[in-house]
Amino acid sequence: MSKDQALIAYVTRMGDNAIVMAQRLSEWVGHGPELEEEMAMSNFALDYVGQARMFFSYAGELDGKGRSEDAICFLRDGWDYGNVLLVEQPNGDFGETIARLVLFETFYGLQLEALATSPATKLAEIAARAIKESTYHLHHAGNWLIRLGDGTDESHRRVQNAIDRLWTYTGELFEADPVDQIMQSEWQGPDLTVLREHWHRQIDELLAKATLQKPEDGWMDSGGKGGHHSEHLGYILAEMQSMQRTYPGANW
């Protein structure tokens, strides 16, 4: 594929990660352990929606086919979505949501940092804006991981289970497929082997503070980047896209 095609695919994937995270986090409205955390989760969801809009709009521009952010978001089916499997996992309990946030945001922050110097200037600008939000998300979620890991026996057990459960989805974050490789060679995108080292160091530090055990690297599930998803994405998209599919062409 050409370097331009790789860029479009890469930017779209970033939008996909963001919008799927937004869908999942907004499920906490009305269900949070405390009102303040519902505010925090919906705040994060709002940040992610903003990021998704920027990524999708940019992808639409690059594409040159006149597709709007909404067309890209609402009119693609699962096999064209390139989000990682980690973000489409169900929320589970609050501990599992926090674990997923920590594992993803640690990666996402490093990815955004690496993109801040990309010659794809629009991408670099979006990354520069998103990183402020990502930093706050990780700060908030990281503190929660510590509270839950070092809280009660029950909270420790729950959040350890969550980390253990989600670990199989962390490998995919660092698997470089052709799109990642072209991003790295042509667009100064991240070197995923370097990112992996940083990620492990940060996760080690956080897990230690939270008195949690780091799981052994076992079999890693993957395929999301290539459009091969778990059964969850279908439901997420069906719900998200239902209005646009039921009333094609309408303005809202």
Partner: peptide, 21 residues
């Protein structure tokens, strides 16, 4: 929120619900 018909509407609704909290 999950079924808002456009991204802009989704963002606005999230902001509104947050305000209510």
């Amino acid at each position: 929120i999950s079924r808002a018909p456009t991204l802009r509407r989704k963002a606005i609704l999230l902001a509104k619900v947050q305000d209510e909290a």
